[in-house]
């Protein structure tokens, strides 16, 4: 008997990196899962690789848009009859820069992709969960939701913002059987980080991508990067019925990086 037997989860992103690990862990624990990505062909390929059969479905759409973030909730309800677990997971940067050089377009993208996306999917999910008086909202935040680093101001600001959103929403629905929590991973070498990392490293004033990995790693107590499996294990716990009393948490999976 899995910990998430009979549950339905939706994950923005979810075809790779942290979201993918969550999807795989949720499937193992007996949940039905909707994952999301921009490219339908890649989505179908991810589904095939995950092997969830009828228990997994793909919702195509750009996770930085309102349409996708609301659509995934509606899609999950339509496909599987309800939504128990909303993972507001997708996020990132495209062409980050120090504040002085930050473009309006990048800033707007990061606000949409990292902050508004969480608001849109959370709001839609809560509207479905509140009448049912049960639900789990899990936001993929970051160690940068509590700290700050030069060169990634949009990421840092939006991750701080979603932590605030989590705390507010947790208080709003605390007596309704709904929990709202954030997972704050340290740096994980995901596909996305491999793609955008070299440019981010340059904007952070670092000599190389490897130097950026080293910087994050050195900040931790374990002197190592984290893994998507570690985040997924925490996600399973927070998503389970047993975690009814855990809410408003900013839960670090960062090898001891954050001071508080």
């Amino acid at each position: 008997m899995g910990k998430l037997e009979g549950k339905v989860a939706a994950i923005t992103g979810g075809t790779r990196s942290i979201g993918r690990a969550m999807a795989e862990a949720f499937l193992r624990e007996g949940a039905q899962v909707v994952v999301n990505g921009r490219d339908a062909a890649k989505g179908e390929q991810a589904l095939a690789e995950m092997g969830g059969g009828d228990n997994i479905a793909f919702f195509a759409g750009d996770a930085s848009t309102q349409e996708t973030n609301e659509g995934i909730v509606d899609f999950a309800v339509e496909r599987f009859g309800k939504l128990d677990i909303m993972c507001c997971n997708s996020g990132g940067v495209r062409e980050t820069a120090p504040v002085a050089q930050m473009s309006d377009a990048e800033w707007a993208l990061e606000i949409d992709w990292n902050l508004n996306s969480v608001f849109w999917s959370m709001r839609r999910a809560l509207q479905h969960m509140i009448p049912r008086e049960t639900g789990r909202i899990l936001v993929t935040s970051s160690v940068e939701g509590k700290l700050g680093k030069p060169g990634i101001p949009g990421y840092v600001a939006t991750k701080h913002a979603v932590n605030g959103l989590v705390k507010s929403a947790a208080q709003e629905v605390g007596t309704l059987g709904i929990t709202v929590n954030a997972l704050l991973p340290g740096l994980i070498e995901t596909d996305i980080v491999r793609e955008t990392g070299p440019a981010s490293a340059e904007m952070m004033g670092l000599p190389s991508y490897e130097a950026m990995l080293e910087l994050f790693s050195q900040e931790s107590a374990i002197q190592a990067l984290n893994t998507v499996e570690q985040v997924a294990a925490a996600a399973v716990m927070f998503a389970s019925d047993a975690a009814a009393n855990l809410t408003g948490c900013l839960f670090a999976v960062d090898g001891g990086t954050m001071p508080y």
Partner: peptide, 30 residues
């Protein structure tokens, strides 16, 4: 049981990446 659940996560394999944490198990109080 809430504490036991979190303790189980910390001693699991995945717990290798979780240290120095002051983990709130307080229904959203802190």
């Amino acid at each position: 049981e809430d504490c036991a659940m979190v303790a189980s996560l910390l001693v699991s394999e995945a717990g290798a990446g979780m240290t120095g944490g002051m983990i709130s198990i307080d229904g959203g109080t802190a």
